[in-house]
Protein backbone atom coordinates (compact mmCIF):
# COMPACT_ATOMS: atom_id res chain seq x y z
CA UNK A 1 0.00 0.00 0.00
CA UNK A 2 1.05 3.56 -0.60
CA UNK A 3 0.05 4.47 2.94
CA UNK A 4 3.41 3.76 4.47
CA UNK A 5 5.38 5.80 1.99
CA UNK A 6 3.79 8.97 3.40
CA UNK A 7 4.72 8.30 6.98
CA UNK A 8 8.36 9.20 7.07
CA UNK A 9 8.85 10.64 3.67
CA UNK A 10 10.73 13.89 3.73
CA UNK A 11 10.33 15.90 0.57
CA UNK A 12 13.70 17.27 -0.61
CA UNK A 13 13.96 21.05 -0.52
CA UNK A 14 14.62 21.30 -4.25
CA UNK A 15 10.99 20.34 -4.88
CA UNK A 16 9.82 23.21 -2.69
CA UNK A 17 12.04 25.71 -4.47
CA UNK A 18 10.91 24.35 -7.83
CA UNK A 19 7.24 24.86 -6.97
CA UNK A 20 7.98 28.27 -5.57
CA UNK A 21 9.65 29.28 -8.83
CA UNK A 22 6.75 27.90 -10.84
CA UNK A 23 4.22 29.81 -8.73
CA UNK A 24 6.09 33.09 -9.14
CA UNK A 25 6.40 32.64 -12.90
CA UNK A 26 2.75 31.70 -13.25
CA UNK A 27 1.69 34.71 -11.18
CA UNK A 28 3.60 36.92 -13.62
CA UNK A 29 2.01 35.04 -16.51
CA UNK A 30 -1.49 35.44 -15.19
CA UNK A 31 -1.06 39.18 -14.68
CA UNK A 32 0.54 39.55 -18.10
CA UNK A 33 -2.15 37.58 -19.91
CA UNK A 34 -4.89 39.43 -18.07
CA UNK A 35 -3.57 42.71 -19.45
CA UNK A 36 -4.26 41.59 -23.03
CA UNK A 37 -7.79 41.78 -24.35
CA UNK A 38 -8.35 38.18 -25.39
CA UNK A 39 -12.08 38.69 -25.45
CA UNK A 40 -11.74 39.97 -29.00
CA UNK A 41 -10.71 36.48 -30.01
CA UNK A 42 -13.33 34.64 -28.01
CA UNK A 43 -15.65 35.96 -25.28
CA UNK A 44 -14.60 33.90 -22.28
CA UNK A 45 -10.95 33.40 -23.31
CA UNK A 46 -9.54 35.73 -20.63
CA UNK A 47 -11.25 33.91 -17.79
CA UNK A 48 -10.40 30.51 -19.25
CA UNK A 49 -6.70 31.34 -19.38
CA UNK A 50 -6.79 32.84 -15.90
CA UNK A 51 -8.54 29.82 -14.43
CA UNK A 52 -6.24 27.36 -16.23
CA UNK A 53 -3.20 29.09 -14.75
CA UNK A 54 -4.85 29.14 -11.31
CA UNK A 55 -5.65 25.44 -11.53
CA UNK A 56 -2.04 24.64 -12.48
CA UNK A 57 -0.79 26.70 -9.53
CA UNK A 58 -3.22 25.06 -7.12
CA UNK A 59 -2.29 21.60 -8.39
CA UNK A 60 1.39 22.31 -7.82
CA UNK A 61 0.70 23.47 -4.27
CA UNK A 62 -1.44 20.43 -3.53
CA UNK A 63 0.98 17.91 -5.02
CA UNK A 64 4.26 19.22 -3.62
CA UNK A 65 3.67 21.64 -0.72
CA UNK A 66 0.87 19.49 0.64
CA UNK A 67 2.77 16.26 -0.12
CA UNK A 68 -0.14 14.67 -1.95
CA UNK A 69 2.23 13.24 -4.56
CA UNK A 70 3.59 11.05 -1.79
CA UNK A 71 0.32 10.60 0.15
CA UNK A 72 -1.90 7.60 0.50
CA UNK A 73 -4.55 6.73 -2.06
CA UNK A 74 -7.13 7.65 0.55
CA UNK A 75 -5.98 11.28 0.70
CA UNK A 76 -6.04 11.47 -3.08
CA UNK A 77 -9.53 10.04 -3.21
CA UNK A 78 -10.68 12.53 -0.59
CA UNK A 79 -9.34 15.47 -2.59
CA UNK A 80 -10.88 14.26 -5.82
CA UNK A 81 -14.24 13.65 -4.18
CA UNK A 82 -14.09 17.14 -2.65
CA UNK A 83 -13.57 18.66 -6.07
CA UNK A 84 -16.35 16.49 -7.44
CA UNK A 85 -18.76 17.83 -4.81
CA UNK A 86 -17.70 21.41 -5.51
CA UNK A 87 -18.45 20.74 -9.18
CA UNK A 88 -21.90 19.40 -8.28
CA UNK A 89 -22.66 22.64 -6.47
CA UNK A 90 -21.30 24.89 -9.22
CA UNK A 91 -22.48 22.98 -12.28
CA UNK A 92 -25.97 22.10 -11.12
CA UNK A 93 -26.43 25.57 -9.64
CA UNK A 94 -25.32 27.34 -12.81
CA UNK A 95 -27.26 24.93 -15.06
CA UNK A 96 -30.51 26.23 -13.66
CA UNK A 97 -29.61 29.81 -14.52
CA UNK A 98 -28.32 28.97 -17.98
CA UNK A 99 -31.50 27.05 -18.79
CA UNK A 100 -33.78 29.90 -17.75
CA UNK A 101 -35.43 31.89 -20.47
CA UNK A 102 -34.27 35.48 -20.56
CA UNK A 103 -31.17 35.02 -18.46
CA UNK A 104 -28.94 36.86 -17.82
CA UNK A 105 -31.53 39.46 -16.98
CA UNK A 106 -30.73 43.12 -17.07
CA UNK A 107 -31.35 45.16 -13.97
CA UNK A 108 -34.71 46.79 -13.70
CA UNK A 109 -36.42 44.21 -15.89
Amino acid sequence: MAEHSSEHHIVPLKYYFGVFGLLMVLTAVTVLVASFDLEHIWGPLNIIVAMTVAVIKATAVVLIFMHVRWSSKLTQVIIISGLFWLLILLVMGVTDYMARTGWPTKLGQ
Binding site: V31, A34, D37, N46, A50, A54, K57, V61
Partner: peptide, 18 residues
Protein backbone atom coordinates in the same frame (compact mmCIF):
# COMPACT_ATOMS: atom_id res chain seq x y z
CA UNK B 1 -2.98 30.09 -0.13
CA UNK B 2 -4.87 28.11 -2.79
CA UNK B 3 -8.07 30.06 -2.12
CA UNK B 4 -6.15 33.26 -2.78
CA UNK B 5 -4.66 31.81 -5.97
CA UNK B 6 -8.24 31.74 -7.28
CA UNK B 7 -9.45 34.97 -5.71
CA UNK B 8 -6.68 37.07 -7.23
CA UNK B 9 -7.52 36.52 -10.91
CA UNK B 10 -11.28 36.31 -10.29
CA UNK B 11 -11.47 39.61 -8.42
CA UNK B 12 -8.45 41.74 -9.36
CA UNK B 13 -7.64 40.71 -12.91
CA UNK B 14 -11.12 40.34 -14.39
CA UNK B 15 -11.19 43.86 -15.81
CA UNK B 16 -7.46 44.31 -16.14
CA UNK B 17 -7.49 44.22 -19.91
CA UNK B 18 -10.16 46.89 -20.24
Amino acid sequence: DIVWIFLFPLLYLTGFHV
